[in-house]
Computed example of a mutant assay.
Amino acid sequence: MPRHEFSVDMTCEGCYNAVARVLNKLGGVQFEIDLPSKRVSIDSEHSVDALLETLKKTGKTVTYLGPQDQ
């Protein structure tokens, strides 16, 4: 399963929870959220565009950083 890394403008536990909530609703994903570095790594068969749109539902600024070696 491909792993993709995103930068998400998260500043607090509430931001962390918002990201986790939208990704859990999407389903079929495994993810790690690194709040201090504002990065989210997602293992998913979903397209990068689908993941970007899902993360943008949090209202945060989201940037795709690229595929990540596992």
Rank of each mutant, 00 (worst) to 15 (best):
V8H: 07
G28R: 08
T61R: 12
L35Y: 10
T63C: 03
L65M: 07
H46N: 06
E45K: 14
Y64P: 01
Y64H: 04
S7N: 12
L26G: 05
S41R: 13
S44V: 03
R3Y: 08
T54M: 01
D43F: 08
A18I: 02
P2M: 09
C15P: 03
I33Y: 07
G59L: 07
M10H: 06
L35I: 12
L51M: 04
R3E: 09
L52Y: 03
C15L: 05
L23M: 07
V22I: 11
V62W: 01
N24H: 07
R21C: 08
A50N: 08
G66M: 05
P67H: 13
E45N: 12
S44P: 02
M1L: 08
N24E: 07
T63P: 00
S37R: 14
T63E: 05
S47H: 04
T54P: 00
G28Q: 06
N17T: 10
K56D: 01
P2A: 12
S7P: 03
L35N: 09
E45A: 13
K57Y: 00
P36E: 14
R21M: 05
V8D: 08
L51C: 01
A50L: 02
L23P: 01
P2G: 11
S7Q: 14
G27C: 11
S41L: 15
H4Y: 15
E45M: 11
N17C: 07
A50V: 04
S41D: 09
G14I: 08
M10C: 11
C12E: 12
E45Q: 12
T58W: 05
A20L: 04
H4S: 15
C12H: 10
M10T: 08
V48D: 01
V48G: 03
V62A: 00
R21A: 07
C15V: 08
N24D: 12
L51H: 00
F31A: 04
S37V: 15
G28K: 07
E45Y: 06
Y16N: 14
M1E: 14
Q30S: 11
H4N: 14
G59E: 05
L52V: 02
I42L: 02
S41P: 01
D43L: 08
T11M: 12
T54H: 00
E13L: 12
S37T: 15
T11A: 15
A50E: 15
S7E: 11
D69H: 10
D34F: 14
D43P: 01
R3A: 13
Q30C: 13
F31W: 09
E32Y: 12
I33N: 06
S41E: 13
K25Q: 08
